[in-house]
C-alpha cells in the first residue's frame, strides 16, 4: 500500500498499543467496542485525511492509519467464543497510545 517506514514512527509493526478510551460525541471511526482495549500494530497503511474533520466539510489534517490486531479474549473477556480468534480494525494514530505510557486500566 505504498507504506513508507516513518522516521520516529511510534507505532512500529508488533508494538503493543491501547485504543484511547474516550467517548466524544460526533463522527468518529474508532468503534466503541475496541476503545480501551489492547492490541498490536499489524501494519501501517498510509496517511489519510482525518474523517472527524472531513465529515463536517472542514479542511482536514492527515493522520497515519494503522491496522490493529486484537485477541478476541482481550476484547470480549469470558464472552469470547474462542479467545484466540482475532479481530483487526483500522484505527487512526490519534486514537492509539503505546502501552508503556499506560494509564492504569
Amino acid at each position: 500500500m505504498g507504506t513508507q517506514a516513518l522516521v520516529n514512527d511510534p507505532f512500529a509493526v508488533g508494538t503493543s498499543v491501547r485504543i484511547r478510551p474516550f467517548m466524544p460525541p460526533g463522527h468518529v471511526r474508532a468503534p466503541v467496542y475496541l476503545r480501551g482495549k489492547t492490541g498490536t500494530i499489524e501494519r501501517a497503511i498510509a496517511p489519510f485525511k482525518n474523517p472527524e474533520q472531513l465529515a463536517y466539510g472542514l479542511p482536514a489534517k492527515e493522520h497515519m492509519l494503522y491496522r490493529v490486531r486484537f485477541r478476541a479474549g482481550d476484547v470480549w473477556d469470558k464472552d469470547a467464543e474462542n479467545p484466540d480468534d482475532m479481530i483487526e480494525a483500522e484505527i487512526y494514530a490519534h486514537w492509539i497510545e503505546k502501552m508503556d505510557q499506560s494509564h492504569a486500566a
Binding site: 467517548m23 466524544p24 460525541p25 468503534p31 466503541v32 467496542y33 476484547v75
Partner: peptide, 13 residues
C-alpha cells in the same frame, strides 16, 4: 446517544 456515550450506529458487539 446511550447513557455511556455509545452512539446508536456503533453496533459492534
Amino acid at each position: 446517544t446511550q447513557t455511556d456515550g455509545r452512539r446508536w450506529h456503533d453496533m459492534g458487539g
